[in-house]
């Protein structure tokens, strides 16, 4: 099953690469670098989001403003939001440097 998933990913990636090369698109190395940059920024945003979320929960508890579980900030949607933040910030940075 694992091999099946990897095969599907390899086939679609290869198809996209072939289509782009035939369309005259170049600069694969720079694109890979940018992709890794977005992934790295996603991790930074995710860790920051979780960290700030934990701090807010602990502050809310200690000040008796509200009581909620720390599991609240372990929501998987935070990862997707972090990805959107990373894409936005990276796109902003690269567009401003052109």
């Amino acid at each position: 099953m694992n091999v099946l998933l990897l095969a599907a990913v390899a086939i679609t990636s290869l198809a996209a690469a072939v289509a782009l090369v035939r369309g005259g698109v170049s600069g694969l190395g720079a694109a890979l670098g940018l992709t890794l940059e977005v992934i790295g920024a996603t991790v930074v945003f995710f860790v920051a989001n979780v960290g700030v979320g934990v701090a807010l929960v602990l502050a809310g508890r200690s000040l008796s403003i509200f009581y909620t579980t720390l599991y609240e900030v372990a929501d998987v949607s935070l990862l997707v939001i972090a990805l959107v933040q990373a894409i936005g910030v990276t796109a902003w940075r690269t567009s401003s440097s052109r």
Partner: peptide
């Protein structure tokens, strides 16, 4: 660097 580490 962080991106590559994350992928791995």
């Amino acid at each position: 660097m962080l991106g590559a580490v994350t992928v791995v």
